[in-house]
Design a protein around this nucleic acid. Sequence first.
DNA 1: GGGAACGTTCGATGAGCATCGAACAAGCAA
DNA 2: TTGCTTGTTCGATGCTCATCGAACGTTCCC
Lengths: 101, 101
Amino acid sequence: MITTLAYPARDEIDLVDVLQALADPMRLQLVRVLDEANGAIACGEIPLPVTKSTASHHFKVLREAGLVFAEEEGTRRYYTVRRADIDARFPGLLDAVLRGV
Amino acid sequence: MITTLAYPARDEIDLVDVLQALADPMRLQLVRVLDEANGAIACGEIPLPVTKSTASHHFKVLREAGLVFAEEEGTRRYYTVRRADIDARFPGLLDAVLRGV
DNA sequence: GGGAACGTTCGATGAGCATCGAACAAGCAA
DNA sequence: TTGCTTGTTCGATGCTCATCGAACGTTCCC
């Protein structure tokens, strides 16, 4: 986890922030890919129909909402879904959202 | 249910639309009040810190997202959460959201 | 060292949305 | 009929946000 970036603590994760973060088709897709992937994924490994600056923006929104963590490895940043934190704070929410069509 | 208004059928309810509708503090509060109330509630019965035109707009968003139904009774419109439809389409979603802090 | 790859940040732009006031329609009561 | 209540619709306004291109800092590799 990159400590220079800001993440909300588990108890600070806000429901409206999470819903707003998930209420975007691209970010919802990102969370789906990250959650299905067993382990961390770099931004660049996920094919996106947007510029890398736009992708970076979406990752920032997910980070600041408390949905993902970032880990540095070289020039790459690997992202993981904060499953335990989200599940603890909003039980069943992520499952319901990711199961949804 | 007022047939002159447009509602998505159960199978047409879109996850992103639902998330976008819930990702607003006022609409989230509205859905909470409607869900906790046993039965239907008129718009005017819910105290809101906005104009009635703004409130009407939020109800329209909730309607078009498939979250609520409207019933007419005189000049009033009573709203109810489409529990069965939402639960059938996105099991556990509404419970997780409404349980959240 | 020089360059390539990766991701962030900044400024700008355009679209979408929350909000308001005013006008309107429908029903109810005196 | 005349008002009063309830809720919707319309136009305008201001803010937020998704998107892009360009510039920058890091890291890795030749």
